[in-house]
Amino acid sequence: MGELSKTIGEKGELLVNNFLSIIGWNNFQDGESIDCHLADNHKRAGTKKRNTHGIDVFCSFRSQMQDYTLDNIVLSVKYTSKPYPANPSSLFKEHFKDLAQTMECYMKSDLRAQNNEDYEMSGINGANDTGVLFWLTNDKQSEQDVVSKVCNINLDKTLSFSTIQIVDNSRAAFIYDSISYVKQNFVDSDYYFHYAFSSSNYKDPDIEKYGKVLPVEYLTSDLIPFRLVDKLSKKVSFCLASREGFLEETINRLLYLASDVSQDFTGDFIFLFPDYDVLEHESIVKRAKRLQKNSNSSLNVRVLSYGNDFRNLINE
């Protein structure tokens, strides 16, 4: 049984490592170990004290969402061959607590100090330290949003951490399916993640407008924005993948959002939904486009489904 658990754990880490490569989080460190600075408080059941914390994956790169800031990301991978529990709260609390305590000691670690020092000469003057819990299962029926079942639970108030994001099967599937669809269906274009500009990221000259690295802030977003750049003509299209299903309200909101965000570089929009159906939804899209064109006649809009269903061939 122990050997099986070890094998499952190794497969889970391999899966997450490959997933990180897809979202551009390359050059990460895995299998790190840091000292525990709160040996008594962080001890596990049945032990006298704790000496170390294991870090499954550590990533660090310049933030594209905040000026002169380094994103340090500590990942914990929890992978199982079984379905999510029907009542996941208890197990979730265990996983969350383990990562939160790791983050608490990471803040005092040599790993963090050395990593931040490595970036000192690049103009960075601050760091965001984020924990990411990948809670995944190999069970093919477990695509449900388990996070929604635990989002309102009461956490241990003694835990000390800044930010922890949760990626479950549903979230991982959305990111993977969106990127895979873009790569496979727009082969004549190079694709990039679009970086939204705000009052938090307009001063830093090293911040790009788009790139190959998915910002950590997008990891739990219900929208993933892409820029598609035609390899020959260099024409740019703005693509938004939505985790939410298709609704008239949603398409209207995305049209306004996209036209506002991309007005300086394109009028070509592509919206991706998991369940868009031409027969059911095309008339709704036409109405939304007509209303939007009353204010801007230069918009070119396409709506597609990234869901893996042979019926999507009708969209091709």
Rank of each mutant, 00 (worst) to 15 (best):
T69R: 09
A86I: 13
Y68I: 11
F58W: 04
F19D: 02
N18Y: 07
I34G: 03
I23R: 06
F61M: 10
S63Y: 00
F19N: 03
L75K: 03
D40G: 05
Q66V: 15
N18C: 05
S81Y: 11
D35E: 07
D30E: 13
I73H: 00
T80Q: 09
S60G: 12
N27I: 09
N72Q: 14
K78S: 03
C36K: 00
T69G: 03
T69P: 07
S21P: 05
F61V: 02
N27Y: 12
K82D: 07
G46F: 09
D30I: 14
F28S: 10
V57P: 02
C59M: 11
F58L: 08
S33V: 15
I23N: 04
A45K: 13
V57E: 00
V77A: 04
G46E: 05
S33Y: 12
S81G: 12
Y84K: 08
K48D: 09
H37K: 06
Y84V: 12
Y79C: 10
D40V: 15
K82F: 06
I73D: 00
S81F: 00
L70A: 03
A39H: 12
P85C: 05
D40T: 12
R44E: 14
A86E: 07
I34N: 00
N26Q: 00
E32F: 01
D40M: 13
I73P: 00
G31I: 05
D71S: 15
L70T: 04
C36W: 05
S76R: 02
P85K: 13
K48G: 02
V74N: 02
R44F: 04
N41M: 11
Y68C: 03
C59T: 01
S21A: 11
R50T: 08
I55L: 08
A45D: 12
D35P: 07
H53W: 06
Y68W: 07
P83N: 08
K78H: 01
V57Y: 01
S63I: 11
G31Q: 13
A39Y: 09
T47Y: 08
Q66I: 15
N27Q: 14
L38R: 08
L75E: 06
D71C: 02
W25E: 09
Q64Y: 01
S76F: 00
H53F: 05
A39E: 13
A45S: 10
Q64C: 13
N18G: 09
K49Q: 06
G54A: 10
R62I: 08
S76P: 00
D40L: 14
N18T: 14
L70M: 09
P83A: 06
S81H: 04
Q66N: 15
S21M: 10
